[in-house]
Design a protein around this nucleic acid. Structure first.
Length: 438
RNA sequence: GGAGGCGUCGCCUAGUCCGGUCGAUGGCGCCCGCCUGCUAAGCGGGUUGGGGUCUCAAAAGCCCCUCGGGGGUUCAAAUCCCCCCGCCUCCGCCA
């Protein structure tokens, strides 16, 4: 959620942000009114409650005196108590009514506030999905025609290598499921270990978080708004399957106050990711590019809001370092306002070159969520100034399936074997090539 | 799944039977001041978080809420009643 002070002081800024996301800006005025109502209900309740407590302060000591009093004083004290009690019951009713009104107005203001997305960073390009800005290209895609052979896609390569079994994935679990087999399974472990060791080297604390979370964690990270249809929910237990380790890593410090001196706190989490892919029927149906489940190594950082911009650049830097080590051509894009998640103020994607599609496709993504998630999850920091929300940021180090697609296709050889980049070889027992089964 | 115990403002802790000077005790830690050549000790003070009000804004002040969470009883709830959650111990089951 955003800071209500900003909403009160500069509602136009919030409207503009909503507009640039292509989201409802009428919430702003509804929320302003709801906030006003909430505050007046709060004052009203506070005043009545104060009155009631004052009364209690008079009655209490009298009750005490009554217990100890001699018989001849009893009647007088009782009479005094009765006088005070006369309006007490009526006052209690009014307190109760004011409290109910306070709670109701608070609930409706809170509900509206929960529907507002994060404020867009003014530096982000404005527009929809296709209005991103390309920041940089790294490496040049291979010219397979010049090398004299036809490109095989990852499905074909996966089959030849005995690495990916899509047919049986579908048989057992349905479409958009797969098995990683043989070198495919080994390749996952190699990619994971390489990523974790890179992150640990950069000071991250490795984490294996729960992949099943309570509604508060899902809500707090902003995935139950527009993204809700893509989240798996376990009805019987009221739990959600996470679509990214960002969720349990963000909720890790919920309801906590962290000492500013311990920031930034950087965690790297390895978890399965589950996505319903609602509304993407017919899109990327071939292979493992778009699937309902994959494993991922995700970086997550809690930092001082003043440092968030720099931290975002650092996360992007580590993503690049990883892809550089895999020797895969890619480009970095600055994602446009209309294509950002509810929590993100700004987002950079790295898109790897996919030879079979002859285009760049998203393999990693890093978002600066500023204080948005921290407010919803009540993660705060304390420094000399006091207590206030901190900033959270996240970034993909490796999303297994998409990285595997890029790796297999970019490093394929004429005979169907795949070259293993040097950085990955130690994690594959020194193997320089993945070779066809027969 | 069954039985029992526990949950207090950073940590530990008093209070809960018998509702009102608990509107929460004491210790540790931490912060500020005094003393001291410095440090320690000692002395004095402070130390949950949130909301509201006031203000251009902030601080101070004042008010309300906050004793795991939610509801109830009552003029009044840490304290009584109900539901839920978490932790611990034992039993059962199990990877």
């Amino acid at each position: 959620m955003i800071d209500l002070k900003i909403l009160r002081d500069d509602p136009e800024r919030v409207r503009a942000s909503q507009r640039s996301r292509g989201e409802d800006e009428s919430i702003v005025d509804l929320l302003l009114a709801a906030d006003e109502a909430r505050r007046s209900a709060e004052s009203n309740y506070g005043a009545l409650r104060n009155e009631q407590k004052d009364l209690g302060k008079l009655i209490g000591p009298l009750q005490g005196r009554l217990k100890k009093a001699a018989d001849n004083e009893r009647a007088a004290i009782s009479a005094e108590i009765d006088t005070l009690m006369a309006g007490a019951s009526d006052l209690a009713d009014r307190v109760k009514a004011a409290e109910a009104q306070r709670d109701a107005s608070d609930t409706s203001a809170q509900a509206l506030l929960g529907r507002l997305s994060n404020l867009i960073d003014p530096a982000a390009p404005v527009g929809g999905e296709d209005d991103f800005t390309v920041l940089e290209h790294v490496l040049t895609p291979r010219d397979f025609a010049a090398e004299g052979f036809a490109v095989r896609d990852h499905v074909e390569l996966g089959e030849i290598l005995g690495a990916i079994d899509i047919e049986r994935g579908a048989k057992v679990s349905g479409s958009r499921f797969y098995y990683l087999t043989g070198v495919g399974a080994l390749l996952e472990f190699a990619l994971i270990n390489h990523a974790i060791s890179l992150a640990c080297g950069n000071g991250f604390i490795p984490m294996i978080p729960p992949a099943l979370v309570k509604p508060a964690a899902m809500e707090g990270t902003g995935f139950l708004g527009q993204a809700a249809e893509n989240v798996y929910r376990l009805e019987a237990d009221d739990l959600y399957l996470v679509g990214t380790a960002e969720v349990p890593l963000a909720a890790y410090h919920s309801d906590e106050i962290l000492d500013a001196a311990t920031l930034p706190r950087r965690y790297v989490g390895y978890s399965p990711c589950f996505r319903r892919e609602a509304g993407s029927h017919g899109k990327d149906t071939r292979g493992i590019f778009r699937v309902h489940w994959f494993d991922k190594v995700e970086m997550f950082s809690y930092c001082d809001p003043a440092d968030a911009l720099n931290e975002h650049a650092r996360l992007l830097g580590w993503e690049r370092q990883y892809l550089d080590s895999l020797e895969i051509p890619y480009r970095v894009i600055d994602v446009a306002s209309g294509d950002l998640g509810a929590s993100a103020a700004r987002k950079f994607d790295i898109e790897a070159w996919v030879p079979s599609q002859e285009r760049y496709r998203e393999v990693t993504s890093t978002s600066n969520c500023t204080e948005f998630q921290a407010r919803r999850l009540r993660v705060r920091m304390r420094d000399g100034e006091g207590v206030r929300p901190l900033a959270t940021l996240n970034g993909t180090l490796v999303a297994i399936t998409r990285t595997m697609v890029a790796l297999l296709e970019n490093h394929q050889q004429a005979d169907g074997s795949v070259r293993v980049p040097a950085a990955l070889q130690p994690y594959l027992g020194g193997r320089e090539f993945l070779t066809p089964l027969t």
